[in-house]
Write a protein that binds this DNA or RNA. Structure first.
Length: 423
RNA sequence: GGUGAGGUGGGUGAGUGGCUGAAACCAGCAGUUUGCUAAACUGCCGUACGGGUAACUGUACCGCGGGUUCGAAUCCCGCCCUCACCGCCA
């Protein structure tokens, strides 16, 4: 959520920047500016009245103590009208405040200057590529067929037990999952991230803090009986660790990593886009999260991008990095780099990581602050996160790209974790 | 699920219808003392939103939301949460 004072002070900047996200903010911003002034006027009025009331009440207390009960009764009579005034003013003030808030949360985060203009994924900017594209023979199999051939993943069994999008991993397929999780966690830990095991269900406040709620509740599985949500990413519980927290500046940046199962309802799409491991309702992901000083957050974002690139390098997969254009940027993000690996048999790029700087957007929602030695006042921190990495599409690419007549070759770095180097 | 206890500032923990934004202690910060450390002493030490160039100042906040009252951390109602014990269970 954007800072109210900032919207008030720079309405044109907000409107202009959001244009890049193809979001027409003119009307909302106009209303906010207008309401903000009304709010301040209302606040001054109501507080003045309350101050007067407090003064009289103190007087009455003193009169009673002095035993001047008659004078006290006279004073009491004076408060009647004032009380009614306060009641009315208060209602009005609360109403305005609520309206401002409702509008405020409708505004997406402002995109960073480096975000390219554009409507959709075709306008994303390729900023980096790595790895080598494998040359597969004409009879190369897509990963879902490889998964079946080698008995690694049973999609139909998942349908039986739960429904589509909930695959059953078995044998070496299951071991591969576990190996990847451990590999990622270890690499992240070596890079200075503290390992966290968060809850997989969260309450409403947490959903609001990271921006899933309100609005995007349709994307999460909702446990209505307890009003809890299955997490779509470990970002939610991990970032919310710091909700309502004032950190010490010297503890920044905070670096956390967590493995979690992720649950996403996202009904949309069909056909080959959701074939096999391309899109699932439940999948595994290792996430990295950082809480940063505002002046350092962009340098940290670059660090995170480098780190994620390093992981993919070790898995020997061809990949590219995209800087998302305004139209493809999420509601909460100021700048996002997507990592895509090449899935050689499908012959398509698959997104395996999304590394973002949210600046103060999430932190403002969850009142995540830090205190600087210089300025005594707490200020809003910046939050960042990225996948490091999401498993299913990595597995898809590993299976497809490394298929040989002898079997599927496991990259060296990973073989140390699987205990086998070929499937 | 049942029963009981309780939710107060970074922590521990007092507290009563008004003089309580809240004792005391610990932690933290600044200073005095000191060869250094320690100790001792002194002062400071919540957040948000307003007003003011500023000093400063107003309001709100003692889990959340209502209510009673001139006045509520304190009394009443509802909700949420935590803890303990029992039951069930990994």
């Amino acid at each position: 959520m954007l800072n109210l004072k900032f919207i008030q002070d720079y309405p044109e900047v907000v409107i202009e920047k959001l244009r890049k996200k193809n979001f027409d903010a003119a009307e909302i911003v106009g209303s906010i500016v207008d309401l903000y002034q009304q709010k301040n006027a209302a606040q001054q009025k109501v507080e003045q009245a309350k101050a007067e009331m407090n003064r009289i009440s103190r007087e009455i207390g003193q009169l009673f103590r002095d035993g001047k009960t008659e004078e006290a009764d006279v004073a009491k009579a004076r408060t009647l009208e004032l009380k009614e005034t306060i009641r009315e003013l208060d209602i009005r003030f609360v109403e305005i405040e609520k309206k401002v808030m409702e509008l405020q949360i409708l505004l997406p985060n402002l995109p960073h200057e480096s975000v390219p203009a554009g409507k959709g994924e075709e306008d994303n900017l390729v900023v980096k590529s790595g790895g080598e594209m494998p040359q597969l023979p004409g009879n190369a199999l897509p990963h879902w067929e490889l998964a079946q051939k080698y008995n690694l993943i049973d999609f139909e069994l998942g349908v039986k037990i739960t429904g589509s999008g909930f695959p059953v991993y078995r044998g070496k397929g299951s071991q591969l999952q576990r190996a990847l999780i451990n590999f990622f966690l270890d690499e992240n830990r070596k890079a200075g991230y503290e390992e966290i095991q968060p809850p997989l269900v969260v309450n409403e406040d947490s959903g609001f803090g990271t921006g899933q709620l309100p609005d995007k509740e349709g994307q999460m599985y909702h446990v209505t009986l307890d009003n809890l949500y299955l997490i779509p990413t470990a970002e939610v519980p991990v970032t919310n660790i710091y909700r309502d927290v004032i950190l010490d500046a010297k503890d920044l940046p905070v670096k956390n990593t967590a493995y979690s199962a992720c649950f996403r309802r996202e009904a949309g799409s069909y056909g080959k886009d959701v074939r096999g491991l391309n899109r699932l309702h439940q999948f595994d992901k290792v996430e990295i999260v950082q809480i940063a000083h505002p002046e350092k957050s962009y340098a940290i974002l670059e660090d995170m991008v480098k780190h994620v690139g390093g992981l993919i390098d070790k898995l020997e997969l061809p990949y590219r990095v995209l800087r998302l254009c305004g139209g493809d940027l999420s509601f909460t993000s100021a700048l996002t780099y997507d990592f895509e690996v090449w899935s050689a048999a499908q012959e398509k790029w698959l997104e395996v990581s999304s590394v973002s700087n949210f600046e103060s957007f999430q932190a403002n929602r969850m009142k995540l602050r830090f205190r600087d030695e210089s300025s005594k006042k707490p200020q809003i921190a910046h939050t960042l996160n990225g996948s490091a990495l999401a498993l299913p599409r990595i597995v898809a690419a590993l299976l497809e790209n490394n298929q040989t007549p002898e079997g599927i070759r496991i990259p060296k770095a990973l073989a140390a974790y699987t205990g086998f180097d070929i499937i």
